[in-house]
């Protein structure tokens, strides 16, 4: 049961994306365009400073989820999943392989967003840059797994697209991205506690606004790591060996 093929699959995932020049260009350009627009819409730097941690957490989660979810689904629709499942590779190989493969791209994308936000949009922050980045890595790992997990529920691209708002909107509205959680009704705050983005936003705010360290935000880190482990287990379990049913 050792995942001996995870690296082989990860390598293939990377090669696949790298050969698709347009996708590669979009992976770099789109987050920059989005961040530029957001930056321009906040003429007062101080406001942007305050909202930046929440934006960074949301982008890391959302882009990673999308990239993985759609790519994983393609594996099924183009029939290669059938070949993989008929081979000796285990489901854990597939999930870990995808996690590793996409992680590299999600990481690149997140690093671009982070550096762009800080050096081009000139957002002020406290805390260490590397600690901010490490915290984001944990967010991404969970999001990549979530993408794999959710895509096992979609039979085709149309169905997958329906899941995107379902994953995105509740988290954006209930996790304090736009307005403070404390101003929401009790029951909404309660729901928010089950959403990973809440911990991403809280942790990143503590680091970037209050200058805390990774050790100070251990609780948020722990929850996000737990979420990553839970989603990889779920993704492995829901990946059916069978086809067409």
């Amino acid at each position: 049961m050792l995942p001996r093929y995870a690296f082989t699959i990860a390598g293939r995932v990377c090669r696949q994306l790298l050969r698709d020049r347009r996708t590669m260009a979009l992976i770099v350009v789109v987050p920059i365009v989005v961040m530029t627009l957001i930056g321009l819409s906040f003429p007062e730097g101080i406001v942007l400073d305050r909202i930046a941690p929440a934006l960074l957490a949301t982008m890391a989660l959302f882009f990673s989820f999308l990239l993985t979810g759609i790519s994983f689904l393609r594996e099924r629709s183009q029939g290669t999943m059938e070949r993989l499942m008929a081979s000796s590779v285990s489901r854990l190989d597939v999930v870990l392989g995808y996690l590793l493969g996409f992680f590299i791209f999600a990481l690149t994308q997140t690093l671009i967003i982070l550096l762009f936000t800080i050096y081009v949009l000139d957002v002020n922050y406290n805390g260490d840059l590397w600690q901010i980045f490490v915290f984001q890595i944990v967010i991404i790992a969970g999001a990549v797994n979530l993408g794999i997990f959710i895509s096992t529920f979609a039979r085709n691209e149309f169905q997958m697209v329906q899941f995107i708002p379902l994953i995105l909107f509740p988290q954006v509205f209930l996790c304090g991205v736009i307005w403070p959680v404390e101003q929401m009704p009790e029951y909404l705050q309660w729901i928010g506690r089950f959403l990973p983005l809440k911990y991403g936003v809280d942790g990143l705010r503590d680091i970037m606004l209050s200058g805390m360290s990774l050790i100070d935000v251990w609780f948020e880190l722990l929850v996000l790591v737990g979420f990553t482990v839970a989603t990889s287990v779920l993704a492995t379990l829901t990946l059916r060996r069978g086809v067409g049913g």
Binding site: R12, Q16, D20, T80, E82, R83, S88
Partner: peptide, 18 residues
Amino acid sequence: AYRIGYMPQLHSLYTELS
């Protein structure tokens, strides 16, 4: 499985790859 060579009815290839 590794002692079987399976060719599905659909092409089932990674189209971006060579």
